[in-house]
Amino acid sequence: MEFGLDKPLVDIQNLTFRRGDRVIYDDMSMQFQRGKVTAIMGPSGIGKTTLLRLIGGQLKPDSGKILFEGADIPKLSRQDLYQARKKMSMLFQSGALFTEMSVFDNVAFPIREHTRLPEAIIRTMVLMKLEAVGLRGARDLMPGELSGGMARRAALARAIALDPQLIMYDEPFAGQDPISMGVIVRLIRSLNDALGLTSIVVSHDVAEVMSIADYVYVVAERRVIGHGTPEQLRRHESPLVQQFLQGQADGPVPFHFKAADYATELMELSR
């Protein structure tokens, strides 16, 4: 497929997505450039994971386009969608390793499913991927025997097993201790640069994201409220963006969930 390398790998245009009556995204647009780490930040509960599922074609938008290499993902036939998915991969928050297989077999799984390579070559490929995430020695362990950070790295090795063009990270830093957080931050950057990947990181860990991302979208209230390089964002004028970046409890995003008047409600109870 001839496709301009200067064009974004993933191009989201005027995306609207509803879940039931609730609007998750309203006319939102985003571009993800090739070879870059692009981050999507925002408060939890705004459907950041949903966005990754939309790009992966697991959900269909109500309107708008999601272009991957120029092909509109929601309009692809089932077969084309599966072909497109071979070029992308996703690192789930839980790792989502197959619990009944060893680490080695987990990483070998996509290779065995999609190629007819001899076992010796598969072994070499798996060991290379595991080496890249530093888990070559853990290949015979079962997922249950891994720590949370190791499980996520093993899942990362599986995600890059077929050398995808796009890799999507769903909250890669959530629930990690500082050391494994540092390891994952480094891995995302180094894998992106070494393998020529395009990375999308969804997260609400401001410091980590700002340190590795080339470009950041801040999403809140169903749309993009600010975007730019980390430098540009730090100088962004929107109070909402600033509240999020600096982690202030109260501000444009109120501390209190929408509720009736406090005093009135207390009076009702005592009555």
């Binding site: 599966y82 992308m88 989502a96 077929l162």
Partner: peptide
């Protein structure tokens, strides 16, 4: 999410 991740691996 094992089923989802399988789907994302085009299986």
């Amino acid at each position: 999410e094992q089923l989802s991740s399988m789907e994302m691996m085009a299986v």
